[in-house]
Amino acid sequence: MVSKTEQSQLDRLENQVDNGGGGDWEYLCLVRKLKVRRSDKVLKYGLAILNDPKKRSSLGQDEWTLYEQVAIAAMDCQSIDAAKDCIKVLQKKFSESKRVGRLEAMLLEAKGSWAEAEKAYSSLLEDNPLDQVVHKRRVAMAKAQGNISGAIEWLNKYLEIFMADNDAWRELAEIYVSLQMYKQAAFCYEELILSQPTVPLYHLAYADVLYTLGGLENLQMAKKYYASTIDLTGGKNTRALFGICLCTSAIGHLAKGRNKEEKDSPELQSLAVTALEKDYKQRAPEKLSLLTTALKSMKIS
């Protein structure tokens, strides 16, 4: 989870490192801690540290973590040679390690030799059948080969065993959304909200899925979840504010023919509109006219 302060810290460090202001190692640590994907930068600055014997030896034990990080980043950037060299160093140091074995299998994956990678993963699983990362790699491999239904099948099997793995639930939800299977995606997001009720982004994603599903009941639910996102973010999430406006407009359209007895909280959307206008006035005054026309076309302001 990346909070607002961590995000700004990362941006600041990234800027500093890009301009040659030092702090490379701190930046790499932060990238690792926040689990963000900055492979090109990790490869560039990580290799610079590894190629400098003085800097490398000053890291102590963290040196090996950096080798691993750089190896994965190199695979992501298709620099197979660099990845191979890093893995070779790790192999020399930890010859029996499962973690290095995993890296080697990932290298096979990056090269595109799927059958060999599959073989490597199965032999790793034979040694330790409950290795979560290897299970996840198999899902990713199915996805990389374009076998989305296979990935879903693997992931469902995986989630039957490891039900508390939030990342896997999120991955499954995203796959379902990409296939437009919104009902299944909604189930995954419900699961995520249940296990981490304070993360506003899950509420937001769930509301998005419900809004996409449509229908009066779903729209009303979506509006509630957009409202809870606003509650958790203190109104600083623009997407949730727009969501409230869109839901109100869509509910208005659907309920036009029916009796208008359930006009719940008419002040909610006017408050959202006010918050949006204030936000735009503060951060992008030149786009304010766009906002007002968009809101007018929704017939709510």
Binding site: M1, V2, S3, K4, T5, Q7, L34, K35, V36, R37, I72, M75, D76, Q78, M106, E109, A110, Q132, V133, K136, R137, V139, A140, M141, K143, A144, D167, R170, E171, E174, T198, V199, P200, L201, L232, T233, G234, G235, K236
Partner: peptide
Amino acid sequence: PYADENRIVSLPANLDFMIF
């Protein structure tokens, strides 16, 4: 929950499922 230190603005990239 909406303070800057607690407000989650983005989820981590799902690195376990990264594809190359």
